[in-house]
Every structure is written in C-alpha cells, then in structure tokens.
Simulated assay, not measured.
Amino acid sequence: MSHINLDTLYRQVIMDHYKHPRNRGTFDDDSLTVEMNNPTCGDRIFLQFKLDGDIVKDVKFTGEGCSISLASASMMTQAIKGKKIEESIKLSKLFSDMMLGKEVDIDEFGLEDIEALQGVSNFPARIKCATLAWKAMEKVNKE
C-alpha cells in the first residue's frame, strides 16, 4: 500500500473513532472517575471505570477536545477493557513511546486502530492530545 493511501486510511480510522466513539458515555452508578485536562489546548477528558479487583471490567469516557484526543480515548477504552490495570499501564507506556517516535510492537496493543495514531509523533504539539486519555487512565493505579 502506498504511503499516501496509508495516510488516508489512518485519517479515516481516526475520524471514525472521533465521529463514532466507542465506549462514550457515563455509568449511572458508583464508579471510579478520573479527570484530566490539557490547559494548553483545552482538551478535557473524564474516564469512568468499573473494576473487578485489578481488572478493567468496563470503561467509559466523556469530554471535549480535538479529533485526535477523542479518537485516542475511544481507542484506549477498547484496548484496556478486560485487562488488568498493570497491563493497561504497560500499554500506556508503549503508546507514549510510540508517540515519541520510538519503535513499538503494535501487536502488543491488541488493537490495530491504535497504529493510526502513529503519525501524530511527527507533530509534537499534538502528542499531548493523543496521550491525554492514556495519562488519565494511569491515575487509576494511584486512586
């Protein structure tokens, strides 16, 4: 596949997650809530977790932000559902490495859509947008 076609595909994947986010919404009952914002651009994310011990049984998000920020939150919620908190934090660190342009094994994520965000690493100002939900999720370990 040519570079141009791959970029177009990645843009489509990001826009699909932005326009049709997975796991967007809130839980009506008690759940662990984490909030984080990026004061530089105004992106804001709220994550809600249903935990079963140290396993993410379910996760939802709400917030305002750019397409990259919200698409990344959608992808992140899909990637961590059913995983242990420790595994989720490991994925977050791999994602951060990818955003910094480091070589990362995409298969470790278990969700190919995340690869669509790889190009964000070429735009340093947008890296915080892509990592916002992931950094917020890491706070669950500290709650």
Rank of each mutant, 00 (worst) to 15 (best):
V59H: 07
I4G: 03
M137T: 03
N141Y: 12
N23G: 13
A125D: 11
I68W: 11
M99G: 07
K142A: 13
K83E: 02
K81C: 06
K60M: 05
C66S: 00
R22E: 03
V120C: 04
K142F: 02
F27V: 12
K57A: 13
Y18H: 12
K57E: 15
E143H: 10
T8W: 08
V104I: 02
S121L: 07
L51G: 10
S74E: 12
V59K: 07
G53W: 04
M99W: 04
Y10E: 09
D29C: 05
F109Q: 01
I114R: 01
A116L: 04
K142Y: 07
L9R: 05
L100V: 02
G25W: 13
D28C: 06
R44S: 09
D58P: 14
V56I: 15
E35I: 03
F61Q: 14
R44N: 14
D107R: 00
L9V: 01
G53P: 05
G82N: 10
T131G: 04
K81G: 01
P21C: 06
K142W: 09
N37D: 15
K60D: 03
I55H: 04
C41Y: 06
K93V: 03
I45F: 05
E138K: 13
M36V: 02
Y10S: 04
K83T: 00
Y10N: 12
S96C: 00
S96K: 13
S74Y: 09
L91K: 02
G110S: 12
E35G: 01
T8P: 03
E87V: 03
F123R: 13
G65K: 07
K90G: 04
V56Q: 10
N122C: 05
T40S: 15
K142C: 00
V104G: 01
L70F: 02
L51M: 14
A125M: 15
F109N: 01
I106D: 02
P124C: 08
L70N: 07
D107W: 00
R11V: 02
E115A: 15
I14W: 01
A133V: 05
A133F: 12
A73F: 02
P21S: 05
G82T: 09
A116Q: 08
F123W: 10
V13C: 07
R22N: 08
D29P: 04
E138W: 04
I85Q: 05
Y18T: 10
M1E: 06
E112L: 09
H3Y: 14
T62S: 08
K19Q: 15
I14K: 04
K57D: 15
F123K: 11
